[in-house]
Design a protein around this nucleic acid. Structure first.
Ligand SMILES: Nc1ccn([C@H]2C[C@H](O)[C@@H](COP(=O)(O)OP(=O)(O)OP(=O)(O)O)O2)c(=O)n1
Length: 651
DNA sequence: ACCGGAGAT
DNA sequence: GGATCTCCGGT
């Protein structure tokens, strides 16, 4: 529809129009100049652990969960270590490898912990991915502050999409007078002038080969600028470079990026060259790029749907799919799905980058392996309580980090027994505190157990999953100091109470005595910055900044807050403290300026999370549905319909 | 609204 | 394989 169909009879004309520029400024998915980026952290969990433990970059490391690996860093991959192999096999392949087990929760515990001494037992603990979620949030924060005008969407714990159209438009117009002149008053259908002769800076990006080139000429390729589509991609490449550098500078993580005209291509692009690199897919490189992929590598084609297509076509190669006409595809796929496939393999994808950085649901789950399978309600309830502790901690942590209060309205419990699965869902009632969650969860578990699993029975238990969703924003008393204080007081150790200061700056606070320990300078956290930027082929071993290794409560709070560190160590109290008039916390005088700067930054961040909320409609109020009592039956091998459960992809 | 399932990281 | 998440279809 909005394809740049205009022919270019006259050399001085671009293929694009002023209308396209306007679309660009609005991040329209129909804009042919649209620029989307996908940024994916390299071996994310492994990088998190390397940072936490201060492991040098070049040392092989993998993250394990029970006996299996869930993340492998690049040095280890060179030795043949991959995800999906066991820790034992990894040791054989790479004896020097450092294996780090994920943190775990234990029944009765208040928080997750890393077991430095021994490996956690799968039957006695449940893994926690919270440390990675926390780092993931920090990355989002860096993205936001680096590229405030981009649309940001969290696509996974270690990957994000950005629609850079708007900020690119701004920069494009600012740097190109020829576009600025007629931009107002000019007819939208009028073709743009071609960009002046220039040499594009691709900021070290790999340029995916176009037809004719047999290999990526890589970082140094120089090429004539043909039109504005390349210009905007180059600007996008610069932004992604800045994003990646910022993540490295501020957090010590390397990541890879893809820059293209839509999400699908951006995602393929980010995976093109992996450790710490970025790739650009120009328009004329799209089909050549796609053609060298198996279409089963494209998102949504990796599962049943992809397999079904392979069965009909007899090939996984994308070029073998191109000859199929839309009717051909429709002959064995639902119309919408056929259309989606037809467009996707040609590089067309108008999926919007949806502004969302918070998850819609939180779930806590645990699988059990023989021989230790829970076989009594007591065991089930025990793990249920661990799930509640986990989820509640995450809700509170998120609140502390974003300064936005969100509470789930719906809870779902899934129980997998011997071939029989049951799930029950109901509104969370009785308040929104931890107890409400616990009682709701217990009700659900009782309901599931009472219903039972039919002939097969639910016992022994193979897996339990607790899910909360339908998050709703609570009033935060935007900018209200009282509310802020209230929230902090609820999640932090009780601060020395004093009436809120009304003075413009701060009031004097007597130094607390022995009981309320105050640590002054436990945070030498002066940004000891790293020199060399992330580079895939950099042989320079650089050790990222080490950070806090403490569990849950370590996340937020001002850097100097004496209440931040839950570890009560013996520190000499300063002569006096000032009471911050923003949060009422006692702050050493010399740290007050920095402390209040922290407030400014935190408020900015809060504004972002709140603004995002406004852009997403709140779900409707849940009706007081019943806790479910009616039972269905089989779920296991239910093959009632051929090709059932086929998801229709809409275009 | 509730439940089951696909697909992805 | 385990732990998460998101989105969709049928009822
Ligand atoms: N089946 C999977 C796939 C991934 N992950 C987690 C661990 C990874 O660290 C993180 C990101 O997944 P990626 O597929 O992006 O893989 P990596 O980040 O580990 O490596 P790469 O550098 O190839 O992206 O998600 C997981 O738990 N289970």
């Amino acid at each position: 529809m909005a394809e740049p169909t205009a022919p270019s009879p006259t050399p001085p004309s671009s293929r694009f129009t002023y209308r396209h520029l306007t679309q660009l400024s609005k991040s329209s998915v129909d804009c042919p100049l649209r620029v989307v980026a996908h940024v994916d952290l390299d071996a994310f969990y492994a990088q998190c652990e390397m940072k936490r433990l201060g492991v040098p970059r070049e040392e092989p490391l993998a993250v394990q969960q029970w006996a299996n690996l869930i993340a492998v860093n690049y040095p280890a991959r060179e030795k043949g270590v991959t995800r999906h192999i066991t820790a034992v096999e990894a040791k054989k392949l790479c004896p020097e490898i450092r294996l780090v087990h994920v943190a775990v929760w234990t029944p009765g515990s208040t928080e997750w912990r890393y077991n430095d001494s021994s490996l956690p037992s799968m039957s006695l603990s449940k893994s926690s991915l919270d440390p990675y979620r926390a780092e993931s949030k920090k990355i989002l924060t860096v993205f936001r502050s680096t590229c405030p005008d981009a649309i940001l969407e969290k696509a996974g714990i270690d990957e994000n999409f950005l629609d850079l159209s708007k900020p690119i438009y701004e920069q494009l117009v600012a740097e190109n007078e020829e576009l600025r002149e007629q931009i107002v008053g000019g007819k939208g259908s009028e073709l743009l002038p071609l960009p002046g002769k220039r040499r594009l800076d691709w900021y070290g990006s790999h340029l995916v080969a176009t037809e004719g080139e047999d290999a990526e000429t890589g970082v140094e390729e120089v090429e004539e600028v043909l039109d504005w589509d390349d210009v905007v991609l180059a600007i996008g490449a610069g932004m992604v470079k800045r994003l990646r550098d910022a993540v490295w500078e501020e957090l010590g993580y390397t990541c890879s990026g893809g820059i293209a005209s839509n999400k699908m291509l951006a995602k393929l692009g980010s995976a093109f060259k992996k450790p710490s690199q970025q790739s650009v897919v120009r328009a004329r490189a799209v089909q050549p790029f796609l053609n060298r992929h198996k279409y089963t590598k494209i998102r949504n084609l990796g599962g049943k749907l992809g397999t079904q297509i392979v069965d009909h076509v007899g090939s996984q190669l994308l070029p073998d799919l191109l000859p199929l006409t839309l009717p051909d595809l429709t002959s064995f796929l639902p119309d919408d799905t056929a259309t989606w496939v037809y467009n996707t393999i040609r590089g067309h994808d108008r999926t919007p980058v949806t502004p969302r950085t918070a998850t819609k649901s939180m779930l806590s789950a645990k699988s059990f392996r023989p021989p230790s399978l829970p076989s009594t309600p007591q065991h089930a309830f025990q793990w249920l309580h661990v799930f509640i502790a986990d989820i509640w901690a995450r809700i509170e942590d998120e609140e502390a980090f974003t300064q936005v209060v969100r509470r789930p309205r719906v809870m779902t419990l899934a129980f997998l027994g011997r071939g029989a699965q049951r799930s029950r869902q109901m509104p969370i009632v009785g308040g929104e505190g931890r107890d409400a969650l616990r009682r709701t969860a217990e009700t659900l578990l009782r309901a599931v157990l009472e219903e039972g699993g039919g002939r097969m029975g639910l016992w022994p238990c193979m897996r339990m999953t607790l899910d909360v969703s339908g998050f709703e924003d609570r009033e935060t008393g935007s900018g209200n100091i009282g509310d802020f204080f209230t929230r902090k007081a609820a999640s932090l150790p009780p601060p020395p109470l004093l009436p809120a200061s009304t003075s413009a700056s701060a009031s004097i606070l007597p130094t607390p005595s022995s009981s309320e320990e105050v640590e002054t300078d436990l945070h030498p956290s002066k940004r000891q910055r790293i020199t060399s930027p992330p580079a895939a082929d950099s042989s320079t071993p650089v050790i990222p900044p080490s950070t806090s290794t403490s569990p849950s409560p370590a996340q937020p709070a001002p850097p100097q807050s004496p209440l931040t560190n839950s570890n009560p160590s013996t520190t000499t109290p300063p002569p006096s403290l000032l009471l911050c008039n923003l949060c009422n916390l006692p702050i050493p005088p010399h740290e007050l300026p920095e402390h209040q700067d922290w407030h400014v930054a935190k408020d900015l961040e809060k504004a972002w999370w709140e603004e995002e909320r406004r852009q997403t409609p709140q779900p409707a109020q849940p009706g007081q549905a019943a806790a479910g009592k009616k039972g269905k039956k089989k779920v296991a091998g239910g093959r009632e319909k051929r090709e059932k459960g086929q998801t229709v992809l809409r275009f």
